[in-house]
Every structure is written in C-alpha cells, then in structure tokens.
Design a protein around this nucleic acid. Structure first.
Length: 544
RNA sequence: UCCGCGGUAGCUCAGUCGGUAGAGCAGGUGGCUGUUAACCACCGGGUCCGAGGUUCGAGUCCUCGCCGCGGAGCCA
C-alpha cells in the first residue's frame, strides 16, 4: 500500500467518537487517507453521502476509488448500499463505522428504533422514531413541514394529510412551538430538505403540549431579552454550535496536556488571600476563620504542584470582582493554567504556541461546516493559525504602536485599543514578551539583562479579540521574592507556603493562563464572551 | 466610579414641527400537496420606564429618578 497522508485530527476524532459511542460518523478531509484508517480497526467502514455538500471533492473521490482505496460495505443482497452509490456519483465521502448498537438506539416506541438527528444519514430508508421539540412549522393546507430539534440537530418532518390519522394532522397544525413530541416515519434523502434528509411522518405523539407563547420567536431579539431567556436561548441552533465548539476546545485542552504527560491538579476555589493582590476579589464568610475569597487564579497552587509533579495544569472556574462592563469580561470564567518546572520563558512561549495551534486545528477539524454556515465565521482566519507566531518585545510593540500613531508611553500596559492595533499587524496570534516590571504581578522574574523588565508574555488573538493568554517565568529566588512582596505591599504571612517552594529545591519555572471564554469567542467569531458560556455571570446579571 | 446611547404591543422597531398609537413577527380564524425566517386574507393586542413641570394639548420639550446597553479603568 502506498504511503498516504492521514489528515491531522481525523484519527483523533474517530477515536474520540468511538470512545463515546460505537457508531461513529466522521468526515474525511482527504479520501486517500481511508486505507490507512483500516489498521485502526475501522475495517467495517462504508461511505455515506452528505447530500448538502457541494460535490467539490467528487473527482478526488472517484480517483481514489479507482485505485481501490475505498472499503465499501455491501448489503446482504450483494448490492452496494444505496447511500454508497449516491456518494460515488457526486458527493463528498463520509466514513461511517458500523459496530455494536449505539447506546441511543434503544428500542423506540412501537418497534421504531430511536434515532438522533446528528446521525440521521445512518438511517436512510429506515423507519425511526425521533424525540424532540417542535421548533418551527410551515404549513400548506394538506401538507405540514414540522421542523423538529432533538439537541443534536434539526430536521424537517413532512406530514401529508392522507398519511396520518385526521386528528393527528389537525393536532400538528395547531401544536404550539416548542411542544415536545415523539415522531415516527421513514428517513429519506431529499435535496429540498434543509439538511438533505427529512422524515416522512407516519405517526406523531405529543409528550407535552407547550404554552402558545414561546418567548423566543423566529425574528430578531435584543441582547437583553435573550439574556433574560438564556435558559431557552440555549436551544437555538447558534447556541448549540457555540456550546459544541466550547466542548471541543475543552477536550482539545485536556488532550493536549494529557498527551504530553501533564498532571491535572485542581486548585482550590476558596483562597485565604489575593493571588496577585491588585485585583478585586469576591469575599465570602468562612466559619470562625473570618473571610475567604473566591480564587482569581490557580497559579500559585499550580507552582506548588509543578514542584511536586514536574509538569501540571489546573483547569477550573475563576472569579474576578472587577467592575468591568465590556465584551471581554465575565465575573466568573474558566481558565486553564499549565506550570512546568525547569522551564524558562522561551519554552513557555513554545508551549503556548503549540497549544493554540492544536486547539484551532481540532476545532476546524470538527466544526468547520458549522463555523461557516451557522456562525458565519471566516475560517481562513483560523487556518492562518500556524507556527511560528510572531514574537515581539514590549519595546518593539511600543515602537510599532508609535508608528501607527498610538502614543502609549513606555511603561504603561496595553488597553483594548492597543491590543487590537498590534494584532491587526499580523495574520495570526502575536506574542508580546518582556514587559515593564511595574505592569506585572509580584511573582514575575526580572529579565537578567534589564532589571526594568519582567519575563512575562501575553498572546494577543487576531481580529481584536485581545489577550487570550498571559504568563511568564516566575521569580525563583527566595530573597528577591520576599522583597517583591514588600514592594507590592502584600502581607507575608499568607504567602509563607509559597515562599517555602523557594526554600526547598527552588528551580526556574514558568507557565501561563488561557481564558476559555475569550478563546471560544475568538474561534467562533463572537462579539461578546457572554455567548460562550451557558449561564454568564456579569457585573449586573446573576440570573437565570 | 466616569463618559456615551437607549427604554413605545409578547418580540424587533418606526413615530416628521407638540395635534386621535403604527408596521413586521408572534397569537387567533380561514385558504393553499414541497415549504425553507413559507405565503395570502381577516381578527385580538398599549401604565409610550416612573415622578414632577411647561402647554389649550406631551410618546415628542424640560428636571429628577430607575433600569438596560456600549465604552474607559482593571484584567483572561
């Protein structure tokens, strides 16, 4: 077998879905890769069509097939599966793994197997039961188009007057939107259907009739209204995709570190004092000990863990009581923070770079179609996220800003405007390093070549999404660190344990923090981070 | 905390110079066998954010207050 390239991500994706379900459907970016997937145990693959795809890969597909590269499942009749034939003629191929029954394929009502819309292609020509919610209805007298959503997707169900009992047809005409239903019929491919498949309805059963006034309509809504109805807004197609991308990013983050041997260490949420001192903390009563604070960073604990286990990451919620009312801020957000012993600033930047490239690749691999079609994201902007990222010093950045007419004086930190300006000079994330020490927290190590500078680095996302990563090398000398605490006017007592890390086997070490919500907003191309988390917590919003 | 914008039907909004409160969607009724945010006809739907003021007359002008949104600072 000739050497063929396995597209990055396909293998991981298949393994991922196979771990989750035993019936997997995955896209193959490059049909030539299929033969190499066989050793993975995918020897029972078949090709199914994606009807709504443009036939742009048809020629490539045909070519691969002539070379005998495609495993094709045949029915017991010996005839190629109808879906395979369709794929052969004009459509982009999909890999479909046939294994043990899907956990969701438990027997549906009345002997119809239950199907999920996400995998509806699998059931073409078969009778199935869908369980979901009535999302929209278009009616044409003796013909209803019922748009049904089951959480994995939306499908058009076609109900002809003669095909169902009269009272069911009447019921379908008046059933309020968002009523929950079980609907049974035959899955068939049809170019007129929005997703290429539709259900020819034979039976419908109402599980719960909704009130007639579902608040979220088919037309536009204001942000405030939608936020008030966040619990219902999550049902929309757009929010479904955003939450799916968030999930993929979380998984990509975990996989990235797990595959590199990092230990996951959970930092506490209740902390005795400020980690960085300057920012505002949420204070909560704590028994006889007075007050505790909600963590604003797991980093100090991450450093302790790195001294114990070498390379670690923390991943959890973080709280900031800053009165920030901007599109980039939440009071509760998720942050992942790797920390590595014996690592210095340059390697820290290498790690951040590999990390972001990995995340973007995984999202593109899994969600390219949804990003383009539902979120209207320009994915070419994401495809540009390749190594190496430009690395500029703070001094360079100031020089560039001055060239562009921004007069930020040396020594000041960058605001949103400066970040956007800088990022606009590059087509991929840009790393800014070696900041003036006074702009950074007490624990940053100084640049041995210039005491005014801290060995910190920020990664600025393109397109004005701002700082998504902040990190750097930590001060590892005991006496210097004690001096820094004094300079920052911080109490020493709560930091004694932290100082211990420098008393017994101190080593150079570095790490960074990545804001999950900002990353999701950037990758999805969202205007505001509040859409990236199911129930955002903001300065003036704590419900729903 | 500061600066800017806004608050009119269930939702999104229009409302001219101060002169009887409007549209689309949603809801209801009827029509239509391939719709794609379906379409067509008809119907119901209002504390114009609140309080006070100017005026013959205030959704509209003025003052104060409340709420929301965006931005700054700070940060991921």
């Amino acid at each position: 077998m000739p050497h063929v390239h396995v597209p990055r991500g396909v293998r991981e994706h298949l393994e991922d879905v196979l771990a989750r379900t035993s019936l997997a459907t995955a896209r193959a970016e490059d049909p030539l890769a299929l033969p190499t997937l066989l050793p993975l145990g995918l020897d029972r693959c078949r090709i199914v069509p994606l009807v709504h795809d443009a036939p742009r890969n048809g020629a490539q597909y045909q070519n691969a097939r002539r070379r005998g590269g495609f495993p094709t499942r045949r029915r017991s009749s010996g005839q190629p599966h109808a879906a395979c034939q369709a794929a052969h003629s004009r459509l982009e191929p999909r890999i479909c793994y046939e294994g043990a029954p899907h956990p969701g394929m438990e027997k549906g009502s009345m002997s119809y197997p239950r199907a999920w819309i996400e995998e509806i292609a699998r059931y073409e020509g078969q009778d199935v039961e869908l369980r979901g919610w009535l999302e929209a209805r278009r009616s044409s007298g003796k013909l209803h188009f019922l748009q049904v959503r089951d959480g994995t997707g939306t499908i058009q169900c076609v109900m002809f007057k003669g095909d169902v009992p009269e009272e069911i047809f009447e019921e379908a005409d008046h059933l309020p939107l968002e009523s929950s239903i079980k609907i049974r019929g035959t899955v068939r491919a049809d170019a007129r259907a929005p997703i290429g498949y539709e259900l020819a309805v034979k039976e419908m059963e109402v599980v719960s009739r909704a009130l007639p006034d579902y608040p979220i309509g088919r037309k536009e809504h204001g942000v405030a209204f939608l936020m008030d109805h966040r619990h219902l807004w999550l049902r929309s197609n757009r929010q479904r995709v955003i939450m799916a991308v968030r999930h993929t990013i979380v998984k990509a983050i975990r996989d990235f570190f797990d595959e590199r041997g990092f230990r996951l260490v959970d930092a506490p949420i209740f902390t005795p004092a400020a980690c960085e001192g300057t920012t505002t903390l949420f204070e909560v009563p704590y028994f006889d000990l007075g007050h505790a604070y909600l963590t604003q960073s797991g980093q100090l604990y991450g450093e302790a863990a790195a001294m114990a286990y070498g390379k670690i990451y923390t991943f959890g919620p973080t709280f900031r009581a800053e009165k920030s009312k901007t599109r980039r801020h939440l009071t509760e957000f998720w942050m992942v923070e790797p920390e590595v012993a014996f690592m210095e600033l340059d390697e820290d930047m290498d790690l951040a770079e590999d990390f972001l490239v990995h995340i973007v690749e995984r999202v593109l691999d899994k969600h390219r179609r949804d990003l383009e079609r539902i979120l209207e994201r320009d994915v070419s902007k994401l495809e540009a996220v390749k190594k190496p990222f430009p690395r500029i010093t703070y001094d360079d950045a100031i020089r560039i800003l001055h060239e562009m007419g921004n007069e930020t004086p040396w020594g000041e930190d960058f605001g949103g405007d400066e970040e956007t300006l800088l990022a606009s000079r590059f087509d991929r994330p840009v790393i800014v390093h070696r900041f003036p020490a006074q702009t950074k927290a007490f624990y940053f190590k100084r640049d041995p070549n210039d005491e005014r500078l801290a060995l910190g680095m920020d990664v600025l996302a393109p397109e004005g999404y701002g700082e998504i990563i902040g990190g750097g090398q930590r001060e590892d000398d005991l006496d210097t660190l004690i001096r820094r605490l004094e300079e920052h006017d911080l109490p020493r007592e709560p930091f004694e344990w932290y100082l211990d890390l420098r008393r017994w086997g101190s080593v150079p070490h570095a790490g960074f923090g990545l804001g999950l919500e900002r990353t999701v907003a950037w990758i999805c191309g969202l205007h505001h981070v509040r859409e990236t988390i199911p129930f955002p917590r903001m300065m003036e919003r704590i419900t729903p």
